[in-house]
Each structure stands twice: as structure tokens, then as C-alpha cells.
């Protein structure tokens, strides 16, 4: 349990938010060209990192906006929060 600093609303309790999984997974530009293996990679395979991970979160019980978060999954420490569409920081 932790406090999340929503880029639109400020600091709120984590239970107002919904985790949206790994960030920066791009939808394939040419879906019809994809092989089954590539679909599996896109749909199911995840990095599931123990350590610093890039994630999407949604302020579900607040402004309902999506944003990105860099979080250490080994101790739940939030490193950085940035808006959707912004480029991920290089570590």
C-alpha cells in the first residue's frame, strides 16, 4: 500500500488507482501481417521485472486519467511519474 502522486490530482491513496500493467507495449501497426508468435508476444508475454519497471496506472476513482509510472517492484518504491504520450526516461 502506498501513496501515488497523480499528475492531475496530486497525492492520493493507492486504492483510488487501478494498475494497468506494463507500459510502452505498442499495438502492432500492421495487425494482419503478424505471425502467431508475434501476437503471443504482444498479447501475453510480459517482462514481469523484479526491480525497476515501467507501468501504466489509471486514477480510476478520481480523474480517471491514465499515466505512466516507474516503480521498483521489489519494494514498491515509486521512482517517477510521467504523463501518457511522454517518452520513457532512459533509466
Amino acid at each position: 500500500m502506498f501513496v501515488i502522486n497523480c499528475p492531475y490530482c496530486g497525492e492520493r491513496d493507492q486504492q483510488e488507482f487501478k494498475a494497468g500493467g506494463e507500459a510502452h507495449i505498442e499495438r502492432p501497426k500492421q495487425p494482419t501481417e503478424l505471425s502467431d508468435d508475434e501476437w503471443a508476444e504482444y498479447l501475453f508475454m510480459r517482462k514481469n521485472i523484479k526491480g525497476v519497471q515501467f507501468e501504466r496506472w489509471n486514477h480510476a476513482h478520481g480523474c480517471r486519467k491514465w499515466f505512466n509510472m516507474v516503480r521498483d517492484t521489489s519494494n514498491d518504491e515509486i521512482k517517477l511519474i510521467y504523463k501518457m504520450g511522454e517518452r520513457p526516461p532512459s533509466e
Binding site: 500500500m1 486504492q15 521485472i49 521489489s74
Partner: peptide, 14 residues
Amino acid sequence: TDDYVSYSQKGSHQ
């Protein structure tokens, strides 16, 4: 379960 990835062996109070 909580809905976020975590290896911390702690969950949320709610």
C-alpha cells in the same frame, strides 16, 4: 490479490 506487479511479499490493506 493486488492488481499490480510486486515482489515485496506485502499486500494492500484494503
